[in-house]
Simulated scan of single mutants.
Amino acid sequence: MKGLKPTLLALCVAGVPPAAMAEIQMLDEAAMGDITGQAGVTIELETQVNIDRLTYTDQGSLEVNDIFVGGTNRTDLFSEMRLNLTGRPANTLLDNIRIDIDVLSDGDAVINFQPQDLAFIDLGIRTGAWNLVGQTDTTTIMDNFRMDALVGSGTLWVDTATDKLNFITDFAIDDMDFDVPFLAIGIRDFELTGSGYDLNAPRALDLFARVNMDIYKAPNHAGVDSLAVDLQSFEADIRIGGILVGGTSIGSIAMDNLAITNTSMLIYGH
Rank of each mutant, 00 (worst) to 15 (best):
A109E: 05
S226V: 00
A161Y: 08
L11C: 05
V64C: 10
G196W: 01
D28T: 10
T138E: 15
E23V: 09
I187G: 03
E191N: 12
L205A: 12
R98S: 14
M142A: 15
E80P: 00
A109V: 14
G37N: 10
V49H: 05
E44I: 09
E191W: 00
L85K: 00
L244T: 01
N91Q: 11
I97T: 00
R210H: 04
I173Q: 02
E44N: 13
D28Y: 05
A22C: 03
A22P: 00
P6K: 02
D177V: 02
L199D: 11
R188M: 12
R146Y: 15
A172R: 03
A14N: 10
D117E: 14
A90F: 10
G223Y: 00
A149P: 08
M1W: 01
M265E: 01
R188L: 08
T139A: 14
T36W: 07
E46K: 11
T248S: 06
A218Q: 14
G15K: 09
K164V: 03
N65T: 12
G196Q: 07
S153T: 12
Q114W: 04
F120H: 13
R239I: 07
L118M: 12
I168A: 04
L156H: 12
T55K: 10
D137Q: 12
D28F: 05
Y216I: 07
I267L: 15
F120R: 05
D95G: 11
K2D: 13
N50Y: 12
L83Q: 15
V13E: 14
G269L: 04
C12D: 09
I168Y: 03
A109M: 12
L266I: 04
R88Y: 05
N112V: 08
G154P: 11
T193S: 13
A14T: 06
A30W: 06
Q25Y: 08
A10F: 02
Q116N: 12
S264T: 14
F182A: 13
D214G: 03
A14V: 03
L231V: 09
A19L: 15
G107S: 04
T169Q: 11
D58N: 15
L199A: 13
T193F: 01
F120L: 04
A129T: 10
R210W: 03
A228H: 13
G40H: 08
G242W: 01
D177Y: 02
Q116W: 00
M176T: 12
I99M: 12
N96Q: 13
I111G: 01
D76M: 07
I99D: 07
T42W: 03
V13H: 10
T92E: 14
F208I: 03
A204G: 00
